[in-house]
């Protein structure tokens, strides 16, 4: 079953050619995963680090039986979550808001309407944001989203509905 293939295995992977396998996956999917991550964490540098970490970790001993794209996406989701958690802690501690302001260059270069949407997206609760990214960026089916997020399909549905409703509220009537 799908779920089965996704499970982490406690056993060490069969030795033969893990490196080439992983290197291939890296070449093929890195950019796509960074794009996914950037929508979850908000900036490129962190996104690249998240993906880098995922691959670095996969070189270690803990490996799923089959390395699938869905599994990699789950890893990225998890990586993004912990980054956001740590970032929140750090911000509470340091209170140095000015360091985090959008640079003037970035502000001047970004499109207003899209930025509005992305900001609203960033304000959503974590799970709602993830569902929207998987659904409307990756165009995944409910079942695939359920698989990647490890939640039930009905939860995917209800979370999506709530997230859209909230976005609508945040963006106002003009959306």
């Amino acid at each position: 079953m799908d779920r089965e293939s996704l499970r982490l295995t406690a056993l060490a992977p069969p030795a033969p050619p893990p490196e080439t396998d992983l290197a291939g996956l890296y070449r093929e999917h890195r950019v796509g995963l960074v794009r996914l991550a950037v929508l979850l964490v908000g900036d490129l540098e962190t996104a690249e680090d998240v993906v880098q970490d995922v691959f670095a970790r996969l070189q270690g001993r803990r490996r799923p039986l089959a390395l699938t794209l869905a599994y990699l996406r789950t890893c990225v989701l998890n990586g993004a979550r912990s980054v956001l958690r740590r970032r929140a802690v750090m911000l509470r501690r340091t209170q140095r808001s000015s360091d985090l302001a959008d640079s003037a260059e970035t502000a001047a270069l970004l499109g207003e309407s899209r930025r509005e949407v992305l900001l609203a997206l960033a304000r959503l609760p974590r799970r709602q944001r993830e569902v929207l990214v998987l659904r409307y960026y990756l165009d995944l089916a409910e079942s695939e989203i359920a698989q990647i997020m490890r939640i039930g399909p009905s939860t995917v549905r209800s979370t999506t509905a709530r997230a859209l409703a909230r976005l609508l509220r945040e963006l106002g009537e003009d959306a």
């Binding site: 680090d49 970490d53 990586g79 980054v83 970035t106």
Partner: peptide
Amino acid sequence: AGTAAVAAAVAVAATAFTVV
């Protein structure tokens, strides 16, 4: 290393996300 990544990100933080 992840922590370092966060530190870097916070330092640069040219991100609309954090502003919010």
